[in-house]
Structures are given as structure tokens and as C-alpha cells.
Design a protein around this nucleic acid. Structure first.
Length: 465
DNA sequence: TCTGGGGTCCTAGGACCC
DNA sequence: TCTGGGGTCCTAGGACCC
């Protein structure tokens, strides 16, 4: 609202999206000033000689100039550097340090707005209505952050959250690190950008769109809604239609509530060692358990996810546990393994385990996008002033996660497992059933009768792809 | 050359109920 | 004895984001 000649005029929403430039690298450079003008390629990553499957989290300008980008395999980045005669420095990531800086930044930003929503460790969206679209207040904020924290932040200013975020990306390449998109200018601002730049369009969708000779957001915006829905499904089709026109009516919701909690791990080398896999699984169950307890959450669904093989195939098994009345769980164990002997030179398989909690539907608010409104992830059992009994329940639910995981002990028990081991690798398991009956899992004790379920959990795969 | 770890959301299909 | 159609719940899989 602005006051003009005594009349209050509604100027509509204004959002400021903030995005820290090269967050991890910038923090490391603040902590170790010599890094700031390092002439070598600095890669924030564990050393690939120790962890061959490491990836680049962030890289400095020198590294970027030779084509090293975030998410790239560190081994590949290293090779790129070698080919171009550039020396490389690896700086192992220190997430606790980045989190500390992140908290300081968010605290500072909160002093400048009535409503802030943290979007990731280095991004936030702010209600900026009180300042409007003028560049000066943003410039002052940027200076303040530089002075008080030392980080360089880029800003996008727009009438909706989607465009503000995309503007902040464009701002990174500008000297003043600010991009303002005035009301009504959204579609024109987006039109020349690549479809890949649109939030929600990744490699797969980009490829499909290019197949239709659609390469810019402007071209996407020209497509009829009905056609997009037909090609991409109801929700995504509608999203593409509106987003490409710069339309977004989402609003800031303030504090974030988790819908899932998970832990995952990628083995340094492929493995079929069931004891090793089992131990890792247990450790991750423990980790998720502790986090749930710490957050005082009850989970109602458990999922296990395994990813492996040349094609990085992912299989998941999940089970709701809410029926049992104390939450239940949702754990994911991601990634397993194939026999390295099969692919000696490549070692594609990675294994990780993720445990995720979810769904204890009894908390009132139905999911805005949920299917019937009853299922809700993660129940917060300690809203202010909750009774102790509820805390007990939280812990019970939490133990349930572990318990359900313990049921999985059949992984390594029984002669069936020996049979499986003899088969050499997961991909060789035959006659597996494609699904796990929840009833079966309920009845599974830690006994040999449960053995065959292993086959169900790690579904048979055709060999060697 | 060979792919981290933490998340979110959507869709398809089967089971089950009425 | 064979079979409809709608709604909901649940599971598996996939795409995407930082």
C-alpha cells in the first residue's frame, strides 16, 4: 500500500528473491582468505582419489571458466582441468559452517521484511511490498549483507514469486546483482529465455519440448493449454502454460514444515555384501530415528529405495503404518549395488539409503494437493502446550521406525539369503514378486520365514542391462 | 567420465468399497 | 453368474530443485 494524496492505493504484491552467489565457495573464501584470489581451480568437493564418486558442489571462477559446474563428477572435473593445464584444489565441504552463515543471513533478512520464506540454504523469498519496485532499498540491503556477513547476494524483484526467482538468476550476471521485472512485464521478460531456465523444466522436459521445436519460454507460452495438458499431464501441463506466461499466484507461507525425513548413502564401491548393506541400513534408520525424535515428529510411512546398475535404476518399496495407531513410518533406503566384477571398469552402481518419515493423517489440515485430504506426512506431536503423553507417542512412533527396520533383519538371515548370495548379485535373482504385501511385512519377525521377502524387496532385474 | 545427499510433487494402476 | 462405475486409499516410479 502506498499513500498518495490521502488515498490508499493497493499496489499489489512485491516479492524479493535472494540468492547467494556461489555460497559454499564464498564461505570458504571468507574463512580462508587466500582462497579468494586463488589462481588454481578451487572445487568444493571431497577428494576424488578418496571418494571416486564425489561430485562438485561449488567451484570458483577459474574452475567455471574451464567448464566445471556444480553437480559434475569431481573425477570428470579433475580431468577437464588436467586437459587444460589447470591445477586443482579440493576443499572438502563443511555443511555446518555453511549452515551457520545461512542462519546469519536469514536473521539479517528478517530484519528487513515482515515475512520471509527460506527456500534452501542459500535462497530466500521476501515480502517486499513496503519497498515497491525501487532499486535503492535492494541496493542498500545488498551492501549491508556484504558489510556484515561478507556474502554477495543477487536479487530478483517482481510481482510474483516465480518471476522474482528467475529474475535473481538473471541478476547474477549483472554488475549490480539486481533484476527488476515490473508488473505486466513478466511474459516479455521470460520470452527470450531458454525453456531450461524455467523452474520445473529439467533435462527430460527440455528434451521433449525441443522435440516439438520449442526452445524458448516465449514459444512455450504460445502453446494451447489443452495441448500441453495432453502432452504433459494435467498438473504439469497447466503449470507450463501459466509459468511460461509469467503467471504465478503462490504466496509466502513463512515457516517450513517437513513432509519427509531421510538419510541416504552412496557406497564408494559397488557391493553385494549383505552384511555391509544391512549395517548401513541400520545406521541410517538410526539417524532418521534420531532426527524424528529431535523434531518431535511421528512418521506414518516407511520407504526403502535402492538405486543401482548402469541405468541407475531406482526401485522403491514403501508401507504406511498409520493403521497401527502410532504413526508408522516411511523410510527409504536408496541405492544398492551390483557386483563390481560385472562392470569392472565402470562401477556404476551406487547405493544409498534413505529413510523418510511421513503421514500421520490425523492432523487436521488436509493437504492442499493431497488426494483425499486424509493423508498427511509427518505429524508434529508437540504443538505448543502439548501434553507429555503426546511426546511419549512421538517416541513410540519413532521406535516404530526402528522396529520396522529391524524387521528387515531377514535381509541377512536364513538359507534363502545364502541362495541369493550364491546367485552373485541382485540382478540375478529370479522369480521375484513385484510387490510387498504389507500384511507379510507385519508378520515378519526376525526369523527365517521372512527370508523370501528379500527377493520381494530387491526385485529381480534383468542381468547386466 | 560416470554420477552426493537432502528434499518436493505428480501420475498410473490396483485393491477395495458401495 | 456376471459385471458397472465412481470414489478413495495405497504403492511404485519419475521428474525436478538446491
Amino acid at each position: 500500500m502506498i499513500e498518495a494524496r490521502g488515498v490508499t492505493e493497493d499496489v499489489g504484491a512485491v516479492y524479493l528473491h535472494c540468492d547467494v552467489d556461489k555460497m559454499y565457495y564464498s564461505v570458504e573464501a571468507l574463512e580462508s582468505p587466500a582462497l579468494a584470489d586463488e589462481a588454481r581451480a578451487v572445487i568444493i568437493s571431497v577428494d576424488p582419489r578418496e571418494y571416486p564418486r564425489a561430485v562438485v558442489t561449488t567451484a570458483n571462477g577459474v574452475a567455471r571458466s574451464i567448464g566445471i559446474t556444480s553437480g559434475m563428477s569431481t573425477a570428470i572435473a579433475t580431468r577437464l582441468a588436467r586437459e587444460q593445464g589447470v591445477e586443482v584444489v579440493y576443499v572438502p565441504p563443511r555443511h555446518d559452517v555453511y549452515s551457520r552463515y545461512s542462519r546469519r543471513l536469514m536473521d539479517l533478512l528478517r530484519t528487513e521484511t515482515p515475512l520471509l520464506e527460506q527456500r534452501s540454504i542459500d535462497e530466500a523469498a521476501l515480502d517486499w511490498q513496503q519497498h515497491g519496485f525501487a532499486p535503492e532499498p535492494v541496493a542498500r540491503l545488498r551492501e549491508r549483507i556484504l558489510k556484515e556477513i561478507g556474502l554477495s547476494v543477487s536479487f530478483g524483484l517482481a510481482a510474483n514469486l516465480l518471476v522474482a526467482k528467475m529474475a535473481s538468476e538473471v541478476a547474477k550476471g549483472r554488475e549490480d546483482h539486481l533484476c527488476v521485472v515490473g508488473p505486466g512485464e513478466e511474459a516479455a521478460f521470460l520470452a527470450p529465455l531458454s525453456v531450461r531456465a524455467l523452474v520445473g523444466i529439467g533435462p527430460k522436459s527440455e528434451a521433449r519440448l525441443r522435440g516439438f521445436e520449442i526452445s524458448t519460454i516465449g514459444q512455450l507460452a504460445e502453446q494451447p493449454l489443452a495441448w500441453l495438458v495432453e502432452q504433459f499431464g494435467a498438473a504439469y501441463g497447466r503449470y507450463l502454460h501459466h509459468a511460461s506466461r509469467g503467471e504465478d499466484d503462490s504466496t509466502l507461507v513463512g515457516e517450513h514444515t517437513y513432509k519427509s525425513v531421510s538419510a541416504e548413502h552412496t557406497f564408494a564401491r559397488d557391493t553385494v555384501d549383505r552384511v555391509e548393506i544391512w549395517q548401513r541400513l541400520q545406521a541410517q534408520a538410526q539417524e532418521v530415528s534420531e532426527r524424528l525424535r529431535h523434531e518431535r515428529l511421528v512418521a506414518s510411512e516407511v520407504a526403502i529405495k535402492v538405486r543401482y546398475g548402469v541405468t541407475w535404476e531406482t526401485i522403491t518399496r514403501q508401507q504406511q503404518g498409520a493403521r497401527r495407531g502410532c504413526g508408522g513410518a516411511h523410510a527409504q533406503v536408496v541405492d544398492a549395488a551390483t557386483d563390481p566384477a560385472d562392470r569392472p571398469a565402470r562401477g556404476q552402481a551406487r547405493a544409498r539409503a534413505r529413510r523418510r518419515s511421513a503421514d500421520a493423517a490425523r492432523v487436521n489440515t488436509p493437504s492442499p494437493k493431497g488426494r483425499g485430504g486424509s493423508a498427511r506426512p509427518l505429524e508434529d506431536v508437540e504443538p505448543a502446550g502439548e501434553a507429555v503423553g503426546d511426546v511419549d507417542q512421538a517416541i513410540r512412533g519413532d521406535e516404530h521406525v526402528v522396529e520396522l527396520d529391524a524387521r528387515t533383519a531377514w535381509w541377512r538371515l536364513g538359507h534363502e539369503v545364502r541362495d541369493l548370495a550364491r546367485s552373485g548379485r541382485i540382478g540375478d535373482v529370479h522369480d521375484a514378486q513385484a510387490s510387498v504385501e504389507p500384511r507379510d511385512v507385519d508378520h515378519v519377525g526376525i526369523d527365517q520365514a521372512a527370508g523370501p521377502h528379500l527377493v520381494q524387496v530387491v526385485r529381480a532385474e534383468s542381468s547386466a542391462a
